[in-house]
Simulated scan of single mutants.
Amino acid sequence: MPDGPLTRERIWATAEDAIRKYGPAKATVVDVARALGVSHAAVYRHVASKAELRDLVVGRWMETIMPPLRAIATKSGPATERLRELFGALIAVKRRRSSEDPELFTAYRALAADAQSVAAAHVDELIELTATIIRTGVRDGTFRTVDPVTAGRALLFATSRFHHPAHAGDWSDPALAAAFVDVWQLLMDGLVTGRKPRKSE
């Protein structure tokens, strides 16, 4: 008998176990149903297809990293500090996931490549969180008059090497931290009002 009512939350947790066991390409709805002790038809009442199961798994995984990022975007404080904190937290959580469970992290990378609408929604929220901070900085004169969403997208893409899972293989490079400092300095030189770029040595 299944242990408790069947919910999307239980399906997600069990699907994650199946992905870990069989890999993202081989894990199926039948595997999930078997592990839950229910028929695959029962699972299909909650997820209509293997593709929807994949989207559920990827979406829930992405959602688990968002609460602290949302908190940073909406708290008070200088915009420059909040923006740096936001990207520092994003980088830290992605790298922590990669180092704590590299096999599952790799599996999620593979799944996310197919879950394009879910991944796009995740990126859109990251852009909007960045734009939220930029918007306050523009209002108080800290940042130049820019379109917050356009600038947020540019910041996210310009720093992708440091937090996008596609670049996870680079994250063990000891020179990466210094590279991020240089990239961030350059980005802030272009965004902060009255800031003069550093002269080259």
Rank of each mutant, 00 (worst) to 15 (best):
A110K: 04
A13D: 11
V123M: 11
G4T: 14
A154W: 12
S49H: 08
W61I: 00
L129Y: 06
P102Q: 12
D3N: 13
A48W: 11
E128P: 00
G169Q: 05
F157L: 15
V30K: 12
I72K: 03
A120S: 13
S200M: 11
I11W: 00
T106Q: 10
I72H: 01
E52L: 07
R195A: 10
A15T: 01
E201A: 15
F157I: 14
T130F: 13
R8G: 04
E201L: 15
L186Y: 14
A178Q: 13
T64H: 11
Y108H: 11
R109E: 08
T145Y: 07
H164G: 01
D114M: 07
E81K: 10
K199I: 05
M188I: 12
A27Q: 02
Q116V: 07
G141P: 03
W184D: 11
S99D: 15
A119N: 05
D140Y: 10
D31T: 14
H46L: 15
V47N: 06
M62N: 10
Q116M: 01
D114H: 12
Y22H: 14
L187N: 04
T130Y: 09
K196D: 05
A166N: 05
T136F: 07
V192I: 14
T136C: 07
L56S: 04
V30Y: 12
L83P: 00
Y44A: 01
K21A: 14
D101T: 04
T142P: 04
K196L: 12
D114P: 00
R8Q: 07
D17Y: 03
V138W: 08
V138Q: 06
Y108S: 00
E9M: 07
G141N: 04
P2F: 12
G77N: 08
K75S: 11
A131D: 07
A168W: 04
V43A: 07
A154L: 14
R198Y: 12
R54G: 01
A92F: 13
V29T: 15
R153H: 14
G4E: 10
K75I: 01
A13K: 14
S172Y: 05
V181K: 13
A79R: 09
P67C: 12
V29Q: 13
A35D: 13
P165E: 06
R95L: 01
P102T: 08
H167E: 07
T80P: 00
M62A: 09
P5W: 11
H46P: 00
I127Y: 08
T132V: 06
W171L: 08
E16W: 03
D173I: 02
L104V: 10
D3T: 13
P5H: 09
L191S: 05
E201V: 14
R95Y: 04
V192M: 05
T132Y: 01
G190Q: 04
A89N: 00
L83V: 04
L191C: 06
D101E: 12
A18C: 15
R70C: 02
L90C: 05
P68V: 03
E16K: 10
G37P: 03
F143V: 02
D124R: 09
A175S: 15
Y108V: 03
P174D: 12
A25D: 09
